[in-house]
Amino acid sequence: MYAFEFHRPSSVADAIAALKAASDGKLMAGGQTLIPTLKQRLAQPSDVIDLGGIKELHGIRQDGNSLVIGAMAKHGEVAGSDLVKSVIPGLHELAGLIGDPQVRNRGTIGGSLANSDPAADYPAAVLALNATIKTDRRSIAADDYFTGLFQTALADDELITAISFPRPEACGYAKFRNPASRYAIVGVMVARTGGGVRVAVTGAGPCAFRLPDFERALAGSFSADALAGLSVSPSGLNSDMHASAEYRAHLVRVMAQRAVKAVR
């Protein structure tokens, strides 16, 4: 790790101010991706701004028909929350599949979404559940949020404060994990929402994406069999030593079917 200045602001405003004052500052939420990145010297920020001391970013609450999860809510908190379990059981389950218990005890939903790792789990939920990303200055619709590999609609100095998940009728998540890293090789969330069926995939492409064909098929008949004849093109999908694009394409269909079966 290279040397840096460390800040621990207690408000969002102070965090933004520290970020703006730094020559190359980096916000740190749970640090479960950032710290390994720094350890491998793949990044050299001048300043690290720890968001752990900002109370307003914490907490999980119900707001009308939505679940609002603070950006600094840890995966373990979501996975252990009775509120999440009762309102969106599929999201509760997904959170319990992220990383490992110790990563879940530190990693946060805001950090995961700001980083937008192509193999992270939360992006599938955000997209499938049509969540809204709330930042220090605006709200971003899920469909506008993921823009590419580690790319999001966030401005350089923008900070996620919370994520608002409208309650779906039902949803389910299925994950095929990388046997080494435990990230998703393919993760699919299927949701039946007021606005129709949404199917979102993580792990397979440069960032999370939806599958309109699958959504249409499920809108016609919400069953695993409805997807049986569908396929996904491997073109543009990720390929590595663990899974080729072709295999990933195949897994997208299989995981989508399993997600349908897991719907609750």
Binding site: R8, V103, N105
Partner: peptide, 11 residues
């Protein structure tokens, strides 16, 4: 439980 290799002491 947390991984002490993935936290800064100052945190």
């Amino acid at each position: 439980s947390v991984k002490a290799c993935t936290m800064l002491a100052v945190q």
